[in-house]
């Protein structure tokens, strides 16, 4: 806990925490914060620029789209899918990755070979192509999106955890626990797992940032969560059609994605340095 207070000495981590908190509030209270219904059209206010430009209106702070829908409200609502997928899919992937990495590195042998061979197979197909295939064929939806990223996105985590466990396996306290006749499973969970928890948390935070990029990419390509549920990727893909006349439609959703992802990177880098002082950076 005392170590966590050190966040105050790291300005980037403070910015990251503040940004992340802001996005969580946005996602939780989107209906209360949004000035308009994100789907209500106003044909007399089509393609309005942001309020500070000529022709902009203060009641549509970030401007409107081709149907006169309020961009700010749409971006606010879009944060919900991003946050849900970031937490849900990353949580699931970390759970599987840590468990399999622990098993692989601690028990080794045939189980290790089998798990690592499975990792080899999954990483042979580029992520984007693998996720797109399954989502397109099974019909994209929010639960499926979380499941697909969660069930297939654990490979790097498993590899990192495995190598950490391998290096811990020879430590005295692990040997001692074994010598005392404790069951192998108990040693793995009581003595090895707590010692890699720091890396797990740092890894998970950085992974959440990558998950946000993956989710937005899938939905930009049209195979993420489907309308009427709003996502930032969809907003960007619609906005691109008006890139020559309404720059704000493709600019603000992208800023939202980048800031949310950036907040997690700042926090993740700080956590990594905190728990792993060996890393040269």
């Amino acid at each position: 806990m005392r170590r966590l207070k050190g966040i105050l000495r790291n300005p980037l981590a403070v910015v990251g925490a503040a940004l992340l908190l802001a996005f969580l509030i946005m996602a939780a209270f989107a209906p209360a914060l949004a000035p308009h219904d994100p789907t209500s059209q106003n044909l007399r206010a089509r393609l309005l620029p942001p309020f500070w430009l000529e022709g902009g209106r203060p009641d549509y702070p970030l401007g409107t789209d081709q149907l006169g829908r309020d961009l700010l409200s749409r971006v606010l609502y879009g944060s919900r899918v991003a946050v849900m997928v970031a937490f849900g899919a990353t949580g699931l992937a970390m759970l599987i990755g840590v468990l399999l990495g622990l098993i692989s590195g601690y028990f080794r042998g045939a189980l290790d070979t089998a798990i690592m061979r499975l990792v080899d197979i999954i990483v042979s197909v580029p992520n984007t192509i693998l996720y797109l295939t399954i989502l397109a064929l099974a019909g994209p939806s929010l639960p499926l999106l979380i499941l697909v990223i969660g069930l297939l996105g654990w490979t790097t985590t498993a590899r990192v955890i495995r190598s950490e466990v391998l290096s811990l396996g020879k430590r005295e306290y692990v040997e001692a626990s074994r010598a005392l006749g404790r069951r192998e499973g108990a040693t793995a969970f009581r003595h090895v797992l707590p010692n890699i928890m720091g890396s797990v948390i740092a890894l998970g935070t950085l992974k959440a940032s990558a998950t946000i990029i993956v989710e937005s990419t899938l939905s930009y390509l049209g195979f993420g969560v489907q309308p009427p549920t709003l996502t930032w990727g969809q907003l960007l893909s619609q906005g691109q059609q008006y890139v020559s006349t309404a720059w704000w439609l493709s600019t603000f959703p992208g800023i939202a994605i980048t800031l949310l992802s950036l907040s997690l990177i700042f926090l993740g880098n700080w956590l990594r340095d905190l728990f792993d002082p060996r890393v040269v950076d």
């Binding site: 990558a210 990029i213 937005s216 890139v243 980048t258 992802s261």
Partner: peptide
């Protein structure tokens, strides 16, 4: 390198279009 990680490449692409093409 941090911004490069945080920025989705499809958004970077659209921003480049906005700047260099539009």
């Amino acid at each position: 390198s941090v911004i490069g990680d945080a920025m989705p490449n499809f958004w970077l692409g659209v921003m480049l279009i906005l700047l260099f093409s539009v």
